[in-house]
Amino acid sequence: MPTATIRERVMDAFRKVEAGEASPFSWDVKTSAQALRAELGPTPDDEDLIDDARAVDALSGIVGAQGREVEFLASSSVLNPFMLEKSVDRSDVEVLARALWQSISPSVDILQVTVEALVASSSWSPGRKKITWSKRSSTPLSKAEVKKADEFSPKIDAIVDELRATAEDGEADYVSFIKRGDPVERAYLLSFAITDGRVLLNVDPISGKITIKPSERRTKTNASVVIALEELPIERRQGKA
């Protein structure tokens, strides 16, 4: 197996540095420069000169990366990178979120809807049929019979209370629970209770069975549940709720 020349090794080192796989300081630039000069020899041909120029370019890239890293470390004032990494390991998600929240000055902007976007969205539907504004505004909230904010919270409270009252052994099967009424409305309301940490959701990784149980302590989660179409009553699938 042929041994790699110093030129090839320098270019490989530069590629690794650029890809973040190696520190630019892991490469001895001075020794490499001397070795490149020795490899060039006293009577280089055109091909040698081109290869040498490529290797020197790669070596200068390594020096550039060293400069950038020094600049970065100086500006970030991180004295102990190892301790930082270990501290992340030991911290839970909430502590990390709070650390970032206390170190960030978020950008501020106003999200807007342009006239073009309104026109485009009003003329779009999965069936490429025009949707009237009245239909858009009445779905799905009117189906779920949730119209005002002050009506919404009591509905979530009611479904959490119902779960508390009816859960056997402290937990209930998710699909059976939502099927006790309008499944879409109940799933919709439950999703807020789950996000808010008032209801805990558990998915068995083997059987895929989804269970829910009321939580005494509010622990926010970002779980989401996919409901297979077959699990919904037929009239709901046909849009006759």
């Binding site: 991180v78 930082l84 650390a99 970032l100 960030i104």
Partner: peptide, 11 residues
Amino acid sequence: EVDLAELARRI
């Protein structure tokens, strides 16, 4: 947006 030195100290 982010003060990286502050973030490292906080963590």
